[in-house]
Computed example of a mutant assay.
Amino acid sequence: MDDKKDLTLCPVATTVGLIGNKWKLLILRELLTGTKRFGELRNGITGISQKVLTQNLRSMEEDGIIERKIYAEVPPRVEYYLSDLGNTLRPIMNVMEEWGLDYLDRVSDDSKK
């Protein structure tokens, strides 16, 4: 979030504020499978620009959800991964995936009627 003082007393609003945009959820989806480099993230998220990916990665790092490791190599290599705090979002993402699959099944079944 832009400012910690924006955190509200509502826990749902807090969660939405931290991970509630489309790109952050897709970044989380990618990092749930393991550590990724910037290019891997960009290739795994259809439609995201370099600028938007960079902004969201910085925001998620500031919020403590992801961490990055910079290797002293030429060219420099940077890897992103979920922090311990970020890993606590895994059950939320799993439930979202289950719900999405169920929704797609229901919509598919409705269209066959």
Score class of each variant (00 low, 15 high):
K69Y: 10
Y71M: 11
Y103W: 12
R58M: 10
L89Y: 14
E79L: 05
N94C: 04
D6E: 12
D3Y: 08
R29G: 01
L7Y: 07
I65A: 04
L57Q: 04
D102S: 09
G64T: 09
A13F: 00
I92K: 03
E30H: 06
E79D: 14
T88H: 03
T88A: 03
M1E: 03
M96A: 14
M60N: 10
Q50V: 11
I92P: 00
L18P: 00
G44C: 06
V16Y: 12
E73W: 02
P91V: 01
L9N: 11
L82M: 02
G47V: 01
S83T: 15
S108G: 07
P91Y: 02
I65T: 07
A72K: 11
T88K: 01
G100V: 05
E98G: 03
D63M: 07
C10A: 03
K36V: 04
W23V: 13
R106A: 15
V107C: 07
V107K: 15
D109K: 14
L53T: 11
G47T: 06
M96E: 07
L9R: 06
K51S: 13
D6C: 05
D2W: 01
S59V: 04
S59M: 14
K5A: 07
V78H: 01
R68L: 06
L104D: 14
D105M: 12
E30T: 00
V52L: 08
V95Q: 14
Y71Q: 09
